[in-house]
Write a protein that binds this DNA or RNA. Structure first.
Length: 713
DNA sequence: GCCTGTGCATCGTCT
DNA sequence: ATGCACAGGC
């Protein structure tokens, strides 16, 4: 920590320094990949606090991921030496959630509102479709949800959407949207889009509220500005336009979220929006080798309509981009696993230096299998998140009902889990009663004795359920969350049920539930005491992918989208095939393709020192096998930057290929020398061979990428 | 009321 | 290949 201003600013190059100290209104920082964007943002905040008399309280810094927010917090804390807890640094969504906890009652929601994730929302949409009498097989809830989501991110309400409708599906969407929104409010629940939208609504409806936040956030900074959508744009504008202390950072070449409403024009037109805006371009890359940077530039150059910039670096030239063509996805995965291990064993890398990227999560499983087989530790980011697992969602649904009894989606989820005799028929009667009397489902349950057509047994079951919930609500008042969670396991019978099952799957679920306690523990360490509301909010907004534990060292597996904002010494980009990447669904129009190209650029520029690109000649996906041509992004890469990578010496044995190895054969390994085959193991499509090396002992090798050569006896 | 099997549709990226 | 919705049997 430094206190001397000159010394402080010496940590930056002169352009970065200009950006850090600029103090005269709106500032746009165009920050090329690896140009020290986060560094500038953190130094800027630290500079404001340390040398300009700005209170940490006055600062609002918005990011898109919790990971980015966490990193910024840590770095600012290091720079200014006061807990960054005092600063509002977070994602758009978490900041809005916090504002809504205070303000949402103005819109008729409970301040204990639930936050519905995609699957909760889809359930509710399905229910709305039913209620409106539409067939949910003709109108897929997911598609409707996506359309509503798009409308919300463009700030269109149901009436607006209905007005724009040009066909029956769009009209139905608008109609479902209206009901969906009503239902959300009745449940005191919001979806992800609402977090932003309702915040904007409140600020527009209640000038005093808006004024409060304008006073509160005297300095606003927005990261990844190219990814903001209309709502986020409005939010930023509402809060920051008056005082004009707004810094936005972004790179139009890294805009990869147009599909969720991000509008790249927000960054391209910043200067029109804020006429006094000053623009600073960061063009020196500190991250990648010359070769990697040039290769990435060669790809992104193909896009039209970019803000011209010339990214350069002083870094060494570095090694060529390594390209590997595998026979199929297993061969590709094996290459990644073998190479990763080799880097650790022979080039003094650690596993945490390495990241493996793919376009879709479906590709991760094969990679995972290969890594497991070679004993390479890894972590997967994104995909089926911890919090989306059934058992976690069930327990969280209990907690939500305890916190917010209006939350019908959660109530329905748990009312008969584990089964307690409140099935379809019973629920149907209760629902009907609730509708007839215009009361909530929970309140209808409380009047169960009045509901006609219910058996004495059903009445008893409902009574038991209510008694349990009420008991838990009372329990909550006097205990902390850990105790509450355990009590839920206990009283609901959920844990008993799992324990009785005695299957591997059930054991895994129990482990996950234990892990939920671990989450509470971590949360406590970070923030001190935790209320149920705080906890539920975190569960809804923080993907486990955001928690990157460094201990031990793992290879990181993640989607390209997940990779944004990160960097790794070694990067593998897999599945470089037409139809996979660029993704088939993006290939219909040029805009989609350009976005994929930006995604490719993002992926490549994550690499500091070594970049691998790989593709498979054929790939099993969606039940069938397809032979995909090599990705255009690879063919766009000038050959001078590429080097074919093949197993050194020896032969690459592709899966399925006959290999006449038998126990007793003598083989030569490219690095480990001579060994004797002990055993051959057939596994699905892969074969393994167990080889005894005199110097090293027994090794298991994947045959599809084994740098092995059979020696004549 | 609950469980199991079958048929069907889907198959992207995130908060 | 997977996951979801519904029908039918217990």
């Amino acid at each position: 920590m430094t206190t001397d201003k000159t010394q402080f600013l010496e940590q930056l190059n002169h352009v970065q320094r200009e950006a850090a100290v600029y103090s005269d209104g709106p500032l746009l920082i165009i920050a090329g990949a690896g140009s020290g964007k986060t560094r500038v943002l953190t130094y800027r905040v630290a500079y404001l606090v340390k040398f300009c008399g700005v209170s940490p309280w006055d600062v609002l810094a918005l990011t898109f991921t919790n990971k980015a927010a966490g990193e910024m917090k840590d770095r600012i804390q290091d720079l200014i030496g006061i807990p960054s807890r005092d600063m509002m640094i977070g994602t758009f969504h978490s900041m809005c959630a916090r504002i809504l906890r205070r303000e949402i009652e103005a819109l008729g929601y409970s301040s204990k509102f639930s936050i519905y994730d995609e699957s909760d929302a889809n359930r509710l949409i399905a229910q709305c479709l039913d209620e409106e009498g539409f067939d949910r097989r003709t109108y897929h809830p997911r598609a409707i949800k996506a359309a509503i989501s798009r409308a919300k991110s463009e700030m269109a309400d149901p009436d607006t959407l209905g007005g724009l409708a040009s066909n029956i599906t769009e009209e139905i969407t608008a109609q479902v949207y209206r009901r969906y929104q009503e239902r959300l409010r009745e449940n005191s629940a919001v979806d992800f889009d609402d977090l932003l939208l309702l915040t904007v609504n409140i600020m527009e409806l209640y000038p005093d509220v808006l004024e409060k936040y304008r006073q509160r956030f005297k300095h606003v900074l927005v990261d990844e500005y190219q990814d903001t959508n209309a709502v986020q744009y409005h939010l930023v504008k509402l809060v920051a336009e008056k005082h004009g202390n707004l810094t936005v950072v972004g790179d139009d070449d890294q805009g990869i979220y147009s599909w969720r409403g991000a509008d790249i024009r927000n960054i391209l037109e910043f200067e029109q929006d804020f006429p006094k805006a000053h623009v600073i371009k960061l063009e020196q890359n500190y991250r990648s080798t010359q070769t990697i940077l040039r290769a990435a530039n060669a790809v992104i150059m193909r896009n039209a309509g970019r803000k011209e910039k010339t990214l350069w670096t002083d870094n060494p030239e570095g090694e060529l981009v390594r390209c590997y063509q595998a026979a199929d996805e297993h061969g590709e995965a094996a290459m990644v696993a073998v190479e990763t291990r080799r880097l650790v064993e022979e080039e003094e890398r650690s596993f945490s230096d390495t990241a493996v990227f793919y376009r879709t999560h479906a590709q991760s499983r094969v990679l995972e299998e290969a890594l497991i087989r070679l004993g390479v530790p890894y972590r997967i980011f994104g995909g089926t998140r911890f919090y989306e697992r059934q058992e976690i969602k069930d327990i969280v649904a209990y907690l939500r009902v305890i916190a917010n009894p209006s939350d019908e989606v959660s109530l329905r989820r748990i009312i008969n889990v584990p089964t307690r005799g409140i099935g379809k028929t019973t629920l149907g009667h209760v629902e009907r009663y609730a509708r007839d009397y215009g009361i909530s489902l929970m309140n209808a349950l409380r009047e169960v004795k009045e509901i006609p057509g219910l058996s004495a047994r059903a009445v008893e079951s409902v009574g038991g359920f209510l008694k349990m919930i009420d008991g838990l609500v009372m329990f909550m008042d006097e205990h902390d969350i850990e105790a509450l969670i355990k009590e839920v396991w206990d009283r609901s019978g959920y844990m008993r049920e799992l324990e009785a099952e005695r299957t591997l799957e059930a054991d895994a679920r129990i482990e996950n539930l234990q892990e939920l306690l671990g989450v509470v523990e971590d949360f406590k360490v970070e923030y001190g005491s935790v209320s149920l509301d705080d906890f539920l909010e975190r569960v809804s907004l923080v993907g486990d992918t955001d928690e990157m534990e460094e201990e031990g060292g793992y290879v990181s597996l993640m989607s390209l989208h997940n990779a944004k904002g990160l960097e790794f010494p070694v990067v593998f980009m897999t599945g470089m095939e037409e139809g996979i990447f660029p993704h088939i669904r993006s290939m219909e129009d040029p805009t989609g393709l350009e976005e994929e190209r930006r995604l490719c650029y993002v992926g490549m520029t994550r690499a500091c020192e070594a970049l691998y690109v790989s593709h498979a000649e054929c790939r099993s996906l969606w039940g069938g096998v397809s032979a995909n041509p090599v990705s255009r992004f690879l063919t766009e890469l000038p050959g001078e930057y590429l080097k074919e990578t093949i197993p050194e010496e020896g032969v690459a044995v592709e899966p399925g290929e006959e290999l006449d190895l038998v126990p007793g054969d003598v083989v030569s390994h490219a690095k480990w020398g001579r060994g004797t085959v002990l055993e051959l193991v057939e596994k699905d499509n892969d074969s393994e061979v167990v080889v005894e090396f005199p110097a090293l002992g027994t090794k298991r090798l994947l045959l599809c990428y084994a740098p092995l050569k059979k020696l004549e006896k």
